[in-house]
Design a protein around this nucleic acid. Structure first.
Lengths: 210, 210
DNA sequence: CGCACATTTGAGGTCCGTCAAGGGTAGTGG
DNA sequence: CCACTACCCTTGACGGACCTCAAATGTGCG
């Protein structure tokens, strides 16, 4: 355990700071203790496009963003626990269990990609916005009032919608009494069951084995 | 090398055969030597939905489909080289390079997920169909005439379109002289540059560093 | 031929993107 | 305190892309 503390390094980033991502010396694994990270990838026209968010308590894997020149930026004050490649290799040699955990971590990343894939595949605007809100709410630990770290335009980039459509759907949710918006970036989930129902996802029934 | 041959196992599946996917004894890594595999995941209404295809020469990773009850089915005659979990661990102990390859394999899977994400996010029907055809063509090794192992409805499930829209876009491509359709499932790519242009992807320009 | 099935084509409706015009709030300077 | 600006969010009208429904056209098989 002392070895773990010696290997990991805690970094603090301010609002808007870029998180370094040099491929050779890249942080091999990282755990976000506090704050939020945004991951941007270059869009078709060369401009950057918001791709995903990382909330406190979630991990970054070696492979996650940085294949295609994506950038990682801190939102708010963020504390990041990082471990470089050689440090992880040394640690993995001493603690075989760590390798299993790394695979689980990658599995989470693939599961998340799968979530986005179904969200973008065949969902309506309403279902996309509801899905995103429900997902963010769960990942933030179901707080009484959750904070959206990005604006409508960027919510639209993630869901494949325009900022106007995002706005319309969120107001519709508010009119239905599913959420409350004290400020545009403050969301209170009033009817969690109703929100889940609007996502269009099956309520996690047991898989009927043929 | 003799050890590798002893560890891997070659299985042959016929058209429509299900590939076993027991989580405990699951094939840890697998290489598809011949044929095509389809990966289905349960849709929102309980029905199965085509999620992705695996062509000959491509690999299956331990984490790929099977998190959410996905099924793997062979199309045509398929030969699959598999290696179970304990076999891979033993092999990785003897050959450290293997672990690096496994990470690269997972990286490919995440890159593929990213491809789908951009495809489904903000592309038109034309761009989606062109992207999918160009992608399949590249993955099949740019044959003179490529074979589509699934029908229009299933192409639609992957691209998030209806079968009618897929059909319309493919005929439009044919009328433009970009592809030729001798049979509905036989596609000859006549103008590869034109097809790439219609995908809506940037032509892989160097990333302009701020 | 008759049937089953996949693809193609057409007509109409709907959802969402586009364009445009307000509103709300924070920050700045008088 | 009050402009005044800048920025984001909201709301509306309109058009187009794609879905839905329906019919026609292959294509393989008994």
């Amino acid at each position: 355990m002392r070895r773990v503390e010696a290997t990991f390094l805690e970094d603090i980033y301010g609002d808007g700071d870029a998180v370094p991502r040099d491929p050779s010396d890249a942080p091999f694994v990282a755990l976000l203790l506090e704050g939020t990270l945004r991951e941007d990838v270059p869009g078709p026209q060369g401009g950057a496009q918001l791709f995903a968010l990382t909330f406190a308590g979630e991990t970054l894997s070696p492979l996650s963003p940085r294949r295609s020149g994506g950038t990682l930026t801190a939102i708010d004050q963020s504390r990041l626990l990082t471990c470089d490649r050689i440090g992880f290799d040394r640690l993995a040699g001493a603690i075989p269990r760590l390798r299993v955990n790394l695979l689980g971590l990658l599995q989470d990343q693939l599961a998340e990609a799968h979530c986005w894939q179904t969200l973008l595949g065949r969902k309506t605007a309403m279902e996309r916005v509801a899905s995103m809100l429900a997902w963010f709410h769960a990942r933030q630990g179901r707080p009484e009032e959750m904070y959206l770290p990005v604006g409508r335009a960027e919510l639209g980039q993630m869901t494949g919608l325009t900022l106007e459509t995002v706005s319309r759907q969120m107001r519709a949710l508010e009119r239905q009494g599913v959420i409350a918006l004290s400020l545009p970036t403050r969301v209170r989930v009033l009817d969690e069951t109703g929100l889940k129902h609007l996502t269009g996802d099956a309520p996690l029934r047991r898989p009927l084995h043929s």
